[in-house]
Computed example of a mutant assay.
Amino acid sequence: MGRGKVQLKRIENKVSRQVTFSKRRSGLLKKAHEISVLCDAEVALVVFSTKGKLFEYSTESSMDRILERYERYSQAEQHLVTTDFESQGSLSLEYPKLVAKAEVLQRSIRHYGGEDLEPLSLRELQGLEQQIDTALKRVRKRANQLMNESIMQLQKKEKALLDKNNLITKKIKENEKTLEERTQWENQNLGQNSFTLMLQQPSLPSLTIGGAFQARGGASIEEDGAEACPSSNQPMPPWLLHHVRQ
């Protein structure tokens, strides 16, 4: 059967109580040492017996160092709690002030918008008018400043575009001039080449009328190495003309 649940209560027998204290104290110190070694934790243990005898255990760091660290942590926690409490108290005091201030600001906004003007006196209305006039002047001044800056930027862009346009126009004119000079050069070369080809063509033989004919002496002029044929530009003799007409 399993072990039953033991009810924790004070041991009435003094001897048994002392024996249990010794055993449990040794086990507690052993467990403290084990947790400090296994978990690399700083452990400080303080036990007082019923007779007021002190039993303590601390890790490699001294007991005083652990206690100082504990005191600093406790003071920081206490200060944090105190600060939170004070901040909550100050917030509770500041809340009504902030609400009243928000209501004043909302009322002023409505007045600037031309609403809820009935409760205002003549002096308050004049002051409100002066404030609106001053604000309107500031708004106009800022608007004019932004407008001037925008105009200056547009002028700079316009100047940059004009410079770019002039550069493109200059390049186009240079390209047109280059193309015109190239065309003239090609036309001149074409004319010179045509003239050269005409000079290089062989001359056509001269046309003779009547083909081969006999000379007065009956000798043939058509033979190779004989007399040359009369030029077509020379006048025909009368006797030849007479035969041609017949």
Rank of each mutant, 00 (worst) to 15 (best):
residue 181 E to M: 07
residue 2 G to I: 13
residue 88 Q to I: 00
residue 40 D to T: 14
residue 32 A to I: 13
residue 206 S to D: 12
residue 136 L to S: 12
residue 68 E to I: 11
residue 51 K to E: 14
residue 43 V to Q: 01
residue 201 Q to C: 01
residue 167 L to Y: 03
residue 24 R to Y: 03
residue 153 Q to C: 08
residue 86 E to P: 00
residue 211 G to L: 04
residue 105 L to S: 09
residue 51 K to R: 15
residue 197 L to Y: 00
residue 171 K to L: 09
residue 97 K to R: 07
residue 200 Q to F: 00
residue 14 K to F: 08
residue 237 P to C: 05
residue 16 S to K: 11
residue 243 H to R: 14
residue 145 Q to I: 12
residue 119 P to R: 02
residue 50 T to F: 09
residue 33 H to C: 08
residue 217 G to P: 00
residue 121 S to Y: 13
residue 191 G to W: 12
residue 21 F to H: 05
residue 133 D to H: 10
residue 111 H to G: 02
residue 75 Q to D: 07
residue 126 Q to T: 09
residue 177 K to W: 12
residue 184 Q to G: 02
residue 144 N to H: 15
residue 16 S to D: 15
residue 230 P to K: 03
residue 39 C to N: 09
residue 139 V to D: 11
residue 55 F to R: 00
residue 35 I to Q: 09
residue 96 P to V: 05
residue 139 V to Q: 15
residue 224 D to Q: 11
residue 116 D to Q: 06
residue 116 D to C: 02
residue 114 G to M: 04
residue 42 E to N: 10
residue 201 Q to Y: 00
residue 234 Q to A: 13
residue 47 V to K: 02
residue 225 G to W: 04
residue 142 R to H: 13
residue 195 F to H: 03
residue 166 N to T: 05
residue 185 W to M: 15
residue 98 L to C: 01
residue 193 N to P: 00
residue 229 C to A: 15
residue 82 T to C: 10
residue 13 N to W: 03
residue 148 N to G: 10
residue 162 L to E: 14
residue 25 R to C: 09
residue 204 L to N: 04
residue 142 R to P: 02
residue 185 W to S: 14
residue 216 R to A: 11
residue 121 S to R: 03
residue 25 R to T: 11
residue 126 Q to C: 10
residue 65 R to P: 00
residue 219 A to V: 08
residue 19 V to F: 11
residue 122 L to H: 13
residue 242 H to N: 10
residue 199 L to C: 03
residue 118 E to L: 13
residue 41 A to E: 12
residue 241 L to G: 05
residue 109 I to N: 12
residue 183 T to V: 13
residue 228 A to P: 02
residue 28 L to I: 10
residue 20 T to E: 10
residue 124 E to P: 00
residue 77 E to H: 10
residue 200 Q to W: 01
residue 172 I to R: 08
residue 184 Q to F: 07
residue 166 N to D: 11
residue 76 A to F: 02
residue 214 Q to H: 01
residue 35 I to Y: 14
residue 125 L to Q: 12
residue 196 T to A: 12
residue 201 Q to K: 02
residue 240 L to Y: 06
residue 243 H to E: 11
residue 141 K to M: 09
residue 225 G to R: 09
residue 106 Q to Y: 07
residue 227 E to Q: 04
residue 182 R to I: 09
residue 133 D to C: 08
residue 27 G to I: 07
residue 140 R to M: 10
residue 193 N to T: 04
residue 2 G to Y: 08
residue 17 R to L: 03
residue 27 G to C: 06
residue 221 I to E: 02
residue 68 E to K: 09
residue 217 G to T: 04
residue 199 L to H: 01
residue 240 L to I: 07
residue 25 R to Y: 04
residue 143 A to D: 07
residue 193 N to L: 01
residue 85 F to I: 05
residue 144 N to T: 14
residue 220 S to K: 14
residue 176 E to G: 02
residue 115 E to D: 06
residue 211 G to H: 01
